[in-house]
Amino acid sequence: MNIFRLTGDLSHLAAIIILLLKIWKSRSCAGISGKSQILFAIVFTARYLDLLTSFISVYNTSMKVIYIGCAYATVYLIYAKFRATYDGNHDSFRVEFLVVPVGGLAVLINHTFSPLEILWTFSIYLESVAILPQLFMISKTGEAETITTHYLFCLGMYRTLYLFNWVWRFYFEGFFDMIAIVAGLVQTVLYCDFFYLYVTKVLKGKKLSLPA
């Protein structure tokens, strides 16, 4: 464990909790892509199946359980409890265009050709693009609530911090996971445009709105 990985995990946790609280307190999931949240629930489920096969640490197990629990709670709030506030018309990204190629890639490029390992690889690839329905929704409506931008910032920072973690682990532990690194780079690049808008607009007290 190093500081980048820990702050990355905490940033990820903060993102998940910010989103849950936003929906719960406002009793609304307006502006949130249910499709991205379903993808994240799939990501956690596919990746953390190793909860059943290997134990790493109490920290590792607890975080996994919390992430999975929160992901399903978020999907439940969007598609069941506050379904009436879900903006399905604007959440029109075709997720099959992500899931199918990513599934194929996971079968082709993985560390070991075994079911659990392919599912882990699938989750890594899928996570890197799972935010696209959310970013697509914002580009379609042209705006995002400030609390939603805080969620996106924390979520984007998490993988960015992991990149530093991988540099650290490469130098100090000789640890090197090409699949995670490449996917993490892709994931971080997808947030760059958003990071720019967050710093130039939201941090200066303005609402995030895109020019028409």
């Binding site: 990985r5 995990d9 990820h12 590792n60 975080m63 070991t112 659990l116 390992e117």
Partner: peptide, 10 residues
């Protein structure tokens, strides 16, 4: 390691 890799990150 042989076989299944141990993924210790989240």
């Amino acid at each position: 390691p042989e076989g299944e890799a141990l993924h210790d990150e989240l």
